[in-house]
Structures are given as C-alpha cells and as structure tokens.
Design a protein around this nucleic acid. Structure first.
Lengths: 166, 166
DNA sequence: AGAGTTTTGTTATGGTATAACAATTAAAAC
DNA sequence: GTTTTAATTGTTATACCATAACAAAACTCT
C-alpha cells in the first residue's frame, strides 16, 4: 500500500495514465466536470515526482497558455482536493497526486527531509486508533493530517557514505 | 495526558507560570538564552487560548515596543520551536505552547473546525506504530505532524441544539 | 434560443515566511 | 578590563502562499 514516485523501478507514466483514467471515471460518475485546466493540472502534479507548489504548477500551466493568475490554479487545486484526486502536504504547502482516489482514505505521508520525495501510505490500524482516541475526548473526527518527516533509505545511505569519507 | 486551554476549569495562569519556569530551566541547562523578546513571545503564545499566528504575535510584540518587522517574530518562533517550547500547527500556520517541553515527545493535536480550540495529546501507542511503519520502509523518523481536525464536544452539542430548533 | 448554473478571467489584496546585511549586545579570551 | 568573537537584534526588501470580489464566458437544460 505504498506509492513511491521516487523509485526508479516505478513506471510512473503508467501511474499517470491510471490516475487520469480513474479521475475521468470518478468525475463522470459524480457528474463533475474534469475541464481542460483541471485535467492538465492533475497531469502536471502527477508528472512531478515530488509535491508541487501551487505557484510552480501555475507557472507550468501559464507556459501552456492557460491563464496565469493565482485563482486559476487554486480553483483547480480545490476541485481536485474535493474530488479526492490529490492531497495537500500541509507541512510543505504542496500538492501530490493521490494513488487511491477511488477508495475513501486519508493521506498519510513519509516525507524525506533531504530529497523531498514523499511516499504515501495507508494504515488502517492507525486510523482506527486515532478515531478511537478522538472519540474518548468527545471529538468527532473529520479529517487527518499525518505527515512523518525524516530520512528516506537512499538519503540515509548517502549520508552514511559521506560520513565515512569525512 | 490532555492539555486543553479551552476548558473553563483549567487554571491557565498557573500553566503559563509553569511553562515559563520550565522554559527558564531548560534554557539555562542547555546554555540557551531566553532573551526578553523570546520570553515575552512564549508568554503571549501561552496567554492565547488558541494557536496564535506569527503576525498576530508580531502585532502584540509591537504594541509592547518590540521591533515590528517580521524577522523579529520568526526568529523568536524558531528559537522556541527548536527548544521544544512551542509547536507549530501546520494546518493552521499557527503556534501553540507546549505543555510537556521537559519531556521529549511529539505534539499530536485535536483541532476543532468550529471554535479553533486545540487539544494536545500524547499517544505512545501511535508513536510506536508510526516509527515501526516508517522503519518498514527503511525510513528514519525525525519528526511527526499529527493533526486531527473535527468537531469538539461542545461544538457538537451547539450544532445539535441549533439543528433541533431549525 | 433563453434562463439558470458553473466555470473562467481579471484585478486587487491579504497572509505567511525568508534573504541579506548592518548594528548592537553578550560572552569568552586574553 | 579591554579586545576578540559569537550571538542576537534591527532594517529593508522581497518571495511565496492564498483568497475576495465582480465581470465575462461557456456549458446545461428545457
């Protein structure tokens, strides 16, 4: 249940195609319109191998002839967020394609401090524990921001070999 | 293990005193300087019953004769964050006094959508699960952002009675 | 085609955060 | 106790993130 854009063995083009196809299906089912700018925004977010900032995305859209004012990108992002097609990584103010848009779920992230790659993971046990913990406080849970910051495996080995030579 | 600034039975002045005393001790122990502006920033954050934005804090500091340019407040916030004396609530871009600065811990938050009060909780089970989950991916965990958004008990009852009368 | 709704264009502004360098203050070394 | 060094603060400028408000255009439905 891990989606890691950074791995080289990962066929990312296929992911993008799948994500776009899923998006089309979901939007059609729900009577939502995946307009040109929304569709292209989703594609660009997926094409990036790490979370994309709103203004980075806006610049890419502008290059392609879309309107270059901020509301353009924020509207597209709002739509995609509401449709569950992307997640926002709060601690980075950046946006990431969601690999499981067809299933209701929360986005839990492992974020590498060093290379800024992000892995999404799904952890039902933790989700259940959090709901329960919240309920104990009389709290009704609506959404969760779970972002784990640290060093990914490849940055750890890079750091280790750099340390060894020093 | 719950710290809830919003509860009326909570003697918040005592909390502030305790927090400041702890801060003094910790800084002294670690050879850190709790300067006037840092100390006052920490106090002001504690005096707020909900997370305080950087510019809100800056305005309060400016009223008291401190320098009114943004770096003033961001430097104080950086210091307090690094010292573990406050937490940043990423999903609100706001800062909150930490009730357990003397113990190494992660800040886990329950944030009410409606009244914006925040409860901090500490949940060792979840922390352990997260470390383990990260390790399975070869990921070395450094910090965690766990923010649960929803409706607190009192806003739920308010909503229920409003709904009943409608 | 016309009425209503959704989406997009456009201008302006508000909120969050940092870079870069100068001046000052505190601490350490002598 | 003065010099040297390091840490902190002052100051100006700027970059980045996000939304308000209203006008224009495009789509949907009948």
């Amino acid at each position: 249940m891990i989606h890691d854009n950074s791995q080289s063995h990962h066929n990312h083009n296929q992911c993008i195609k799948t994500a776009l196809a899923t998006a089309e299906t979901l939007c059609t089912e729900q009577g939502q319109r995946l307009t040109k700018v929304r569709r292209r925004a989703l594609e660009l977010i997926w094409e990036s191998h790490r979370p994309l900032g709103a203004y980075q995305l806006l610049a890419k859209l502008a290059e392609e002839g879309f309107n270059s004012a901020p509301p353009t990108v924020y509207r597209a992002l709002d739509f995609l967020l509401n449709a569950g097609l992307i997640h926002k990584v709060e601690s980075m103010n950046a946006y990431l394609g969601c690999a499981h848009a067809d299933k209701a779920h929360k986005g839990y992230f492992l974020i590498c401090d060093q290379c800024h790659n992000v892995m999404e993971f799904d952890y039902q046990d933790i989700h259940a524990s959090l709901i329960e913990k919240a309920a104990q406080q009389g709290f009704e849970l609506r959404s969760e921001t779970i972002e784990l910051i640290g060093l990914c495996a490849s940055c750890q080995s890079a750091a280790a070999s750099a340390g060894a030579s020093a």
